[in-house]
Design a protein around this nucleic acid. Structure first.
Lengths: 128, 128
DNA sequence: GGTTGCCCTGACGTCGGCGTCAAGGATTAC
DNA sequence: GTAATCCTTGACGCCGACGTCAGGGCAACC
């Protein structure tokens, strides 16, 4: 299949596929006229990339998964390098979620203080 | 005080201050020689901006707080527009945290499956 | 043979919040 | 007087993952 069909079947764009190719992530064979040619296995690779992207992985982080699939494994996440990325990502997520929760708490407190119960300030006699 | 001192006292850079000024967020008076001049109130505005930036607010979102302070309020977050930004930010944070937790769960599951206990797949007789 | 619709490469644009020169003027220190 | 340190404006760089032209080729259909 050609690039347009692959893009459509993966729910992405031709530009994205060319970008992946430029990064060496999803190389394509070429037909006689120079058109990129893909098969079902490329679709599988692409879907792996897209899934991880949706999870917030950046492109480089998807590479081990793609290489794992290309190495013949039925799943991209069974190789050691992929597992390492998973673990690192979990740590990053935990750290990030923790930070966001801390920020959320601070903002929530500030909102409560500023909103209706500024313990000492509001007593000054504001109109609003 | 001049730009270098203000930057130092707020723990930021002159470049950042000029950037804020270019965004209309922190305009400066000028002394005879063309140098930017700031006073203590500017430091307060700047600290408000920095605090919110640390919380992950983008610059535009800090504007209501700055204008609130400039309007004479002792705190930047007591004005309606600021409160609105707080609330919106809380919603965004809740949504984001929720998404991240969902992603975390999915990755955790995939890791568990790929790691040692693929409930059905491993039974196929893989070596790894 | 003309129109439509795919494909190609190359290259610049986007977004935010600055960093980092470059080329010069002002002030202060010695 | 001159060196060092501040300040000025202007402009390009960065990062990631593409979007969006521009200018042209190839294919298929009627």
């Amino acid at each position: 299949m050609r690039i347009g069909e692959l893009a459509a079947r993966a729910g992405t764009t031709t530009r994205t596929l060319r970008y992946y190719e430029s990064r060496g992530l999803l190389p394509a064979r070429r037909s006689g006229n120079g058109y990129r040619t893909y098969d079902e296995s490329d679709l599988k690779l692409l879907r792996q990339i897209r899934t991880l992207q949706d999870f917030g992985f950046d492109l480089e982080e998807t590479r081990p998964f793609v290489e794992c699939l290309r190495a013949g494994h039925p799943e991209g996440d069974t190789c050691p390098a992929s597992l390492a990325v998973y673990r690192r990502k979990l740590d990053e997520l935990d750290a990030l979620i923790g930070e966001l929760q801390a920020v959320r708490a601070k903002i929530g407190l500030r909102l409560a203080l500023a909103e209706g119960e500024p313990p000492l300030c509001e007593l000054g006699g504001q109109e609003l």
